[in-house]
Amino acid sequence: MADDHHGPTVRIYLAVFASLMFLTALTVWVAFQDLGMFNDVVALGIACTKATIVILFFMHVKYASRLTWLLAGAGILFLLILFAFAMADYVSRGWLGMPASHYLQ
C-alpha cells in the first residue's frame, strides 16, 4: 500500500497534457488523409494511446497498488471479451451455410 509517496509531478501532468493535445491534433490531421484500410486502424491506435496515457497518469494507475493494476487489467480483459464475442457474431455470419435470419423468412 506504500504507493502514494511518489505521485505524478506537475511537470508530468503538463507533459501528459501536451502529448494528449498533440495526439488530438494528429487525429484531426489524419482524418483528412486517405490511408485506405488503415483509416480506422490509425484512428483507433491513436485513441488507445491517449486512453492509456490518461489511465496511467491522470488516473494514477501507474503509481497504484498491484490490486488496482489487477482491477484495471480485469476491466481491459472484459472489454476484450466484449469485442471478441461480438466479432464472433459479425465474422461468422453465413458460416454453416445458413444465415441466422433464414428463420425469419
Partner: peptide, 22 residues
C-alpha cells in the same frame, strides 16, 4: 455470466455459429 449474452439474440440475425457458442 459475461459470456452468454447472445442467448437473447438467437432470432436477431446473429450468426448461427455465435448462437451455438452462446
Amino acid at each position: 455470466g459475461f459470456l452468454v449474452w447472445g442467448h437473447h439474440m438467437f432470432v436477431s440475425s446473429q450468426s448461427t455459429y455465435a448462437g451455438m457458442v452462446f
